[in-house]
Design a protein around this nucleic acid. Structure first.
Lengths: 103, 103
DNA sequence: TATCTTGGTAAGCCATAACTAACGGTAAGC
DNA sequence: GCTTACCGTTAGTTATGGCTTACCAAGATA
């Protein structure tokens, strides 16, 4: 049920920006803060949330921390989506079948 | 880019519950409020957000409003996910190709 | 070894939004 | 036609969380 964490993590616009930024290319915290309209600590905090949700990984490079997107983190939400999609279509078909004769 | 609205709408846990409830079966506001630990106005507001995001539809039935899930609302996020997925794998492959030296 | 650079953490403030309570409107039933 | 019940909206309060400033830790370089 970790797809919920993914939704919560990606629910914030700033966090989506950070995620998409590191998706384009792995970057250090300072670089991200430089191109985003938020401070470095803010970026760091968002990265922590994303990391907890399994959406990014961290690689130490001297004093720098290079963050990269982790596509696998989207696997759960992807699986849920496909599952839901098929279930919904099924229910929809059943409803049509029964005929929606109001209550 | 409406997948962002979808993420924002589904980012809230309560809203996910409401969405999943109406997914199981179309229901009125009062019924939803009765089985969820939130008040009726709260449910109503959540449904408004979900409706704006195109995730639910409303059908008037006398004085009652029957809300139903709209699977199509997930189409955008689904498309984005597939797009991102393939792009990410591509970038990942390119990165591997260039060789991730160190560590 | 000393200093500088870089990143993470903690505390506090502020904004957004979710929740509750109360009111008004509308349709159904008697 | 009046009463009742249900639904939606609005105002007010509370709480969650995001942003910033300040401080601390770790590593590289001279």
């Amino acid at each position: 049920m970790a797809y919920q964490d993914t939704f919560s993590a990606l629910g914030d616009p700033t966090r989506r920006h950070v995620f998409e930024a590191v998706s384009t290319q792995p970057r250090a915290v300072g670089e991200l803060a430089a191109e985003l309209p938020v401070s470095r600590p803010a970026v760091s905090q968002h990265l922590k949330v994303l990391a907890d949700a399994g959406l990014v990984t961290c690689r130490t490079e001297g004093t720098r921390r290079i963050y990269a997107a982790r596509p696998e983190g989207l696997a759960e939400i992807r699986a849920w989506l496909e599952q839901y999609w098929s279930d919904a279509l099924e229910s929809f078909a059943a409803e049509i079948d029964e005929g929606v004769r109001d209550s």
